[in-house]
Design a protein around this nucleic acid. Sequence first.
DNA 1: GGCTCAAGTCAACGTAGTTGACATGAGAGC
DNA 2: GCTCTCATGTCAACTACGTTGACTTGAGCC
Lengths: 155, 155
Amino acid sequence: MPKTSQAAGLHRASLAKLNELDAALELMYYGWRGMTLEADDYLAKQGLSRSHHRILYVVARRPDIAIGALIEVLGISKQALNRPLNLLLERKLLTTQRAPEQHRSKLLRLTAAGQRIEQRASDHERKVMRQAFDRAGASGAAAWMAVMEAIADNN
Amino acid sequence: MPKTSQAAGLHRASLAKLNELDAALELMYYGWRGMTLEADDYLAKQGLSRSHHRILYVVARRPDIAIGALIEVLGISKQALNRPLNLLLERKLLTTQRAPEQHRSKLLRLTAAGQRIEQRASDHERKVMRQAFDRAGASGAAAWMAVMEAIADNN
DNA sequence: GGCTCAAGTCAACGTAGTTGACATGAGAGC
DNA sequence: GCTCTCATGTCAACTACGTTGACTTGAGCC
């Protein structure tokens, strides 16, 4: 079971800057933590963690996704998916059903309870983003998105 | 020992957007991966990983930091620090010396080899950031920083 | 010698992932 | 029915990274 709370890297450390871009590296690190901190706390209280949230998040946005496709999207092995997925099924946050035509694959869908938890966890993250975007204004938000796109596309 | 390469979440998944801010959540996720992917590959080739890089990064910017202070900055337990730190000492990427006045604490410092690895790993990350900033221009970069500050300060 | 603080170490555990091997369930073809 | 294939499920062993708790060692202080 996950922890209840985490003190890891809570306050940003004051480090000398060796390079002009060091601030950006650190902002990425602390930004990720800042966005996920409250959501992780909420999930921990539900006895869940980030990996469960990722599953719920994807299934919410791809209802009736097959397990193989879910593995693809998450980019993990089926063995790694196995445990968290079964927990979500046991807790009835997800349901499976055989496909109507393609009986070989099982389709996943959120239950009402699963939807609620997915939504609340994601809401914690969206709240952080919304506050930051509000402070930066529409043009600042657009610029942030553009920069993040460029970084993300660096595959 | 770490892996050599990782295919996890390589290409951004196409998910339906349930909420206006979903794109921002996903950009944060893929942005983090985009920034760290090449650096992690480089580190893996050196037989090191992200946790070693974090140690090297901090010590580079706080030469003569004591172990207790390093634990504070990293936000992990001394037991968790123990293994990666010892590896870095064995490999002579770091050195320790007793403090001149405060003999109780040991001060850490990078060796030339440690500096080289820290720099190359961070360079991979900075390269990604620089490209993104170049595309966005100075005002875009400033806006990105402002938004990330707001997110990071959400402790 | 005894107290304190910094550091080091050991054991047990939790979580998240990996690979490899193998079993099961459900069409599809002959 | 038998076999082949594909999707799914599961077992075992492993790695990496983190946790807590308990205990030791080293150094300085009184």
